[in-house]
Design a binder for these strands. Structure first.
Lengths: 204, 204
DNA sequence: ACATTAAATTAAACATCGTTTAATTTGTCA
DNA sequence: TGACAAATTAAACGATGTTTAATTTAATGT
């Protein structure tokens, strides 16, 4: 075996990931290209294909890192809160804050239409995130059936994500300028109130 | 003045819009290109720039048509319902159904990161859609302050959109397979219940 | 120490893209 | 009929993701 440079495959992989993240942060998904990434790490576009399947694969690895950071943030916001409702409130706000702080990284996860379906190691990270919310809902609804909790988790998640998406892409500002945080609280509070008030209702 | 073909500017515009829509439906946003559109209407890519600013402008015009269709659908679902809650339920379901029926047209509205901010004639169409929901909320909360209604509309809209987005892009299937419609109902019902139960609560 | 060999890396090619430019066709009017 | 202007195109430009063949590099066997 022989290699010209003193970078191992893993090193190149790491360098490429960091370079991609930097470009993504500074120029957004539209400003990302294989040649830019390669130039940033002193290599050529072709070399990236030795380490990643293609640009989509590279981007997927950056996204999973973003998901990990998001996980840390959400976990931190889910700890010291007296009531479960407060936790779920805070986690939503933490999600929104994260998206605002890292708009390009965050939207890189959703902006793209992926060719292949997500690999397992990626879906696992998302499940990891869901688990964080699910724990709280199990605490909130201790006697509820498993699938009811799962349903609540998804509804919550969709709501928060919707606020984030429409809020950050400015699709709401055209109409009014309510803050995204207020919107999130309105949605969560009312949803949770409804959920905890009529635990026994059957409507399906 | 002289023109080679017997197509007026308006005709070409219309032809291009229809061709774009067809390509979008069949091949998705990733399969769309100026050359394809031009070829489909028997012209050359350059000719499109006589009629549209650029591809983004062309796509925007297709999207506004999609919004108009969506408006018709929502309006239809908002008519014959005994209770307001039922209307809001149905409108959400209609939105989801529309997105499922026209997945590529629907996601073309959101998948792309736009260079320029939306023109007024586009934002107006969105406001038009919001109005449809706002009417129902005003009916639901006749005594509420205007901004509270506006807030509720946005929360509702974000929730529904979030369900749609995460549901259609398959970001939820990785975890469980609850139907998108059930999810929508869970979110809406609980949110509305919370909203109508504690009308007088103050928490901001 | 040197030739061999295989891996690492690149340069170049390919097909495509959005957009702009100059060239060409076309129809109308003096 | 000839001149002019609008309509349309062909071609060019710079850029993209990806693949290929060529080249460089370092370790190995002798």
């Amino acid at each position: 075996m022989a290699r010209r440079s003193d970078h191992s495959r893993e090193q190149i992989k790491e360098m490429a990931l960091q370079a991609t993240e930097k470009i993504l942060i500074e120029q957004g998904l539209a400003g990302l290209s294989t040649r830019k990434v390669a130039a940033a790490i002193g290599y050529t576009a072709g070399s990236l294909y030795l380490v990643f399947e293609n640009l989509e694969d590279l981007l997927l690895h950056v996204n999973v890192r973003t998901l990990e950071k998001l996980f840390q943030t959400l976990q931190g916001s889910a700890n010291d809160c007296p009531e479960v409702q407060t936790c779920l409130r805070n986690m939503a706000l933490a999600y929104i804050t994260f998206a605002k702080d890292h708009p390009n990284l965050w939207s890189a996860i959703f902006e793209r239409q992926w060719q292949n379906e997500m690999p397992d190691w990626y879906n696992d990270k998302i499940a990891h995130l869901f688990q964080l919310v699910e724990d709280k809902f199990q605490q909130l609804l201790p006697e509820a059936r498993t699938d009811k909790v799962a349903q609540a988790v998804r509804a919550y998640w969709c709501g928060v994500h919707g606020v984030c998406m429409l809020g950050l892409t400015g699709k709401l500002d055209a109409i009014s300028d309510h803050s995204t945080e207020e919107l999130s609280n309105t949605l969560i509070d009312n949803f949770l109130f409804g959920l905890t008030s009529k635990k026994e209702s059957r409507d399906d």
